[in-house]
């Protein structure tokens, strides 16, 4: 069962945080097809947020085809994302790369910038919102 962590200071809408954390759990293989998401009751009891916020997040995940609501049973994962479990070879390569970067004297921000630039090069985002005054 996944547990949602609501960050009140992040400025990110609460339902978006639930959507993002569910996707992250799918990417990491913490959730797989057939797994049940916690019920709205379980989420709000643990996080003290409005039940409609959870339902809104689940509707969004359903709209994206990631989960499906089964009447009277709950909300279930339909497909996974990225399909790279936490112990995949790609992750191992990335870890060894990160160790080499550290040994080469790069700090966290350097790695962030380098990784971001390679990411942008290989995964362009056509519909990305540009910050103001940057167009």
């Amino acid at each position: 069962m996944v547990e949602y962590r609501i960050d009140r200071r992040s400025g990110v809408a609460t339902y978006v945080q639930i959507v993002q954390q569910t996707k992250q759990a799918l990417r990491l293989g913490l959730l797989e097809p057939g797994d049940r998401l916690p019920t709205a009751r379980e989420v709000v009891e643990a996080t003290a947020i409005n039940p409609n916020t959870v339902l809104k997040a689940y509707r969004e995940l359903e709209r994206e085809g990631l989960v499906e609501a089964r009447r009277g049973l709950g909300t279930f994962v339909r497909r996974t994302l990225g399909a790279q479990p936490a112990d995949s070879p790609l992750r191992a390569e990335l870890e060894s790369w990160a160790r080499r970067a550290r040994a080469a004297g790069l700090d966290r921000e350097d790695v962030d910038a380098l990784f971001g630039s390679v990411l942008d090069q290989h995964f362009p985002k056509p519909d990305e919102l540009f910050p103001e005054g940057d167009q």
Partner: peptide, 15 residues
């Protein structure tokens, strides 16, 4: 206590 009791209240509303 605030967080726990609000959670209890929200769970009741959800159910």
């Amino acid at each position: 206590a605030r967080h726990d009791l609000m959670g209890t209240l929200m769970a009741d509303a959800a159910e």
